[in-house]
Simulated assay, not measured.
Amino acid sequence: MSHQQPPPGWGPPPGAEGGPPPRRKGNAGKIIAFSCLGAVLLVVALIVAITLVARDGDGGGDGDPERRTPAPRSPSGRPQEESGARGDVKITTCEVDPVTKWAAAELLVTNRSSKASDYIVHVEFVDASGTRLSETYTSTNDVAPGQQSKVTAQGLDRITAKITCRIKDVTRSAS
């Protein structure tokens, strides 16, 4: 028998001629780096959320009377003429979709301030006795002074009763 060389590519694998196989690079460093980055982003998001809740959770403790304005009431309990951000929002339609049974309120937002503004509107859907059946939020952004914006406040709860839509709260902030 003669000793012939095997064809190229048929020989022993690299590193098998008398030493340990080559070391594979691991991904442990990348995993640790991305885990740390994710943890930092989560902490930042929690700090922002806590700050917003602490600032706005007490009814607008930031001192801006235009920012959060609940619907004013007369001594008899009836709504008065709205002022501030609350007065910028009017309900144009209020109905329950016959197919989905979801409530929806069409709103007309008119920016009566002197600056372009963003609006967040809290709408509740109540039955004839005033019991809240559902609620939702909607928003519209960068509404110029004097400009109007039509938005829909869409509820996602199944409702079978006749409803009334009420604006619970309006937040307006400069864009």
Rank of each mutant, 00 (worst) to 15 (best):
P98K: 12
S113T: 10
E81I: 07
I91L: 00
D62M: 02
R78P: 00
E82D: 10
D118R: 00
G77S: 05
R67A: 15
Y119C: 03
D118S: 01
V121T: 09
V89P: 06
H122W: 11
R112C: 01
V109M: 07
E124R: 13
G87S: 14
S114H: 12
A54G: 12
E124Y: 01
S114N: 09
C94R: 08
V126Y: 00
G57I: 03
G60W: 08
S114G: 08
V109H: 06
S114D: 15
R86S: 04
T100E: 07
G57Q: 09
S113F: 12
S117P: 02
E106C: 01
R86C: 03
S76M: 15
D62V: 03
S113V: 01
A116M: 08
K90M: 01
E66D: 13
V99H: 09
D58I: 09
A103I: 00
G57H: 09
F125Q: 03
V53K: 13
G84A: 10
P65R: 09
A103G: 13
V121I: 13
P75I: 08
S113D: 09
L108V: 11
S76V: 05
A85G: 05
K101R: 15
V96I: 13
S83I: 12
C94L: 03
D118V: 03
P98W: 05
G59I: 14
T110P: 01
D97E: 13
R55Y: 15
E124N: 12
S76Q: 14
Q80F: 00
E95V: 05
E81Q: 15
L107D: 14
N111P: 07
S83P: 03
F125R: 02
I91M: 00
S83K: 11
P75L: 12
G84V: 04
V121G: 11
G61D: 11
K90W: 00
W102H: 15
R86A: 02
R73N: 06
A85H: 02
A71Q: 13
C94I: 08
W102M: 03
V89F: 06
Y119N: 07
R73C: 01
P79A: 12
A54D: 12
R55C: 10
E106G: 10
S76A: 15
G87Y: 08
R67W: 10
L107M: 14
G60F: 06
R67Y: 06
P79D: 13
D62G: 12
T100R: 13
E81N: 09
E66G: 08
K90Y: 00
F125D: 03
Y119Q: 05
E95L: 02
A105P: 12
V123L: 04
E81S: 12
F125P: 00
A85E: 07
T110A: 10
G59Y: 00
E124L: 10
A71H: 04
D58L: 04
A105Q: 09
R86L: 08
R73W: 04
A104C: 02
R112I: 00
F125M: 05
P79Y: 12
E66H: 07
V121D: 05
L108E: 15
T110S: 13
I120S: 03
W102N: 05
Q80P: 00
P65C: 07
A116W: 01
D56E: 10
T92M: 01
V99S: 06
A71G: 11
E124M: 06
G60T: 06
V53Y: 10
P98Q: 07
A103D: 02
G60R: 05
C94W: 04
P79W: 15
R112L: 05
S117H: 02
S113L: 05
R112Q: 10
E95I: 00
P98S: 08
H122V: 02
D56H: 15
L108A: 14
